[in-house]
Write a protein that binds this DNA or RNA. Structure first.
Lengths: 231, 231
DNA sequence: CCTAATAATTAGGTATACCTAAATCGGCGA
DNA sequence: TCGCCGATTTAGGTATACCTAATTATTAGG
């Protein structure tokens, strides 16, 4: 035995696989490759195959998996994955608003706790926060019944033509990155003027509020999601 | 691999063993028997032996264990056990005061979360609560530096002579019991008159506030800790 | 169309933390 | 003092979730 099981019956590990599959599945609903999962989860490809075979055999299966053809969430798996995302984002919002955590420490704490809180805890912090729709990074918080409103935002690296954009969200995966992004004033809601730079490795932007010009590396820029406001 | 490791390097399971040893070690600082640990943790005696051997061999060892002679916490082990208890009691206080949890749901949630919160989380909820000294059940919350003030309270079942007592704390281990105890008005701070009953299985008490007389079973009464106020 | 690189899978191990069943130990009563 | 009984330990297994190394698929380029 060992390996703690949650209310749901899943282990922490299983939840992490489901969450990873959800986030690697684009809006196009395609299949996710084992290698992509392995990279995301930081485990060996063989471990992914093992886990997918196990999940695939379980009843009811949270995934639709075919040898050499990648994996996709079943409705069951998607329901759970979305619930874990809801937990994560509610916890981040709670840590930020109630416990005054600094932005870049939210992710790691939420990542651990999301697997272990009860439905009651979820319900109570949601109530305390007034059932928020967005977390502190600008990500949509799925509703209790599993609806996750889709944003049609693009990555800052995907901008085709110069224009004025507004920041929707910033990725919380890398604390160092996030800290830098925040220090530049790039927070959800901020407006900025984007100029396609000559260098393929950098993106030039200008913040509307401060009129400061900035050059961001591809890596940093890809952590920022935006939508166009005007040309 | 598998089995999550905390900041400290311990697994959840190890923490639970340390906590159980701490709570089974009376104020007399004696050794704890394997059987007692097995019963407390709900595992087979053989599992206890296994774990104690493993802990005993680790460096620095959290326990002082000798074959057939029981186990005792080393200073290292005691430090960790007390920290986990601090986590548990702070979390309970937080759930009760900030998230309005009902008394009898505190324990289970805290029992899960105590292993996974960071030092920052601990520090933030302690600050939010004004560094409380007692949890909602009346148990002392160890300080940050591991001091745990000792209470010289006795169990309600240990009363020798009739008299007036004040409730120090109630055990949170069994939610059903706790719910019943609470419904009788037996909360920390309450005063009551105890009369040694004729039956060896029951204890008669009378609450000062309501003047209601009650008979408690041994099991229920042993969940209540008190100290004498006068004869 | 075939091969070489990359992806994926299989085979065989490790560590944690449980379990049951079979010894073995230790202290108490006859 | 001896034997017995309960407590403890040893021996041997299970399940989870990882790993590496070896093998097999797929696919893209020549």
């Amino acid at each position: 035995m060992s390996a703690r099981r949650q209310a749901n019956g899943n282990t922490e590990s299983v939840d992490n696989y489901l969450k990873a599959i959800l986030s690697l599945t684009g809006p196009e609903e395609g299949r996710v490759a084992s290698k992509a999962l392995a990279d995301r989860l930081g485990v060996a490809p063989a471990s992914v195959t093992n886990m997918l075979q196990k999940l695939s055999a379980s009843q009811p299966s949270p995934v639709d998996y075919e040898r050499h053809r990648g994996v996709r969430l079943s409705p069951t798996g998607k329901r759970r994955a979305v619930e874990v995302v809801r937990h994560h984002r509610l916890i981040e919002t709670f840590l930020f608003q109630v416990l005054d955590y600094p932005l870049e420490e939210l992710h790691d704490e939420a990542e651990r706790l999301e697997h272990f809180i009860s439905e009651r805890f979820e319900e109570r912090i949601a109530a305390k926060l007034g059932h928020p729709s967005f977390d502190p990074h600008g990500h949509v918080i799925p509703t209790m019944d599993g609806q996750m409103a889709e944003h049609d935002s693009i990555l800052l690296t995907e901008v085709e033509d110069d224009g004025i954009f507004m920041i929707d969200s910033v990725s919380d995966r890398d604390p160092r990155n996030l800290r830098y992004i925040e220090s530049c004033g790039l927070t959800p809601g901020a407006r900025l003027h984007v100029t396609k730079s000559v260098s393929p490795d950098e993106i030039s932007i200008q913040l509307s509020t401060t009129s400061t010009a900035l050059s961001l590396s591809r890596e940093v820029a890809s952590a920022v999601r935006i939508h166009q406001v005007r040309n």
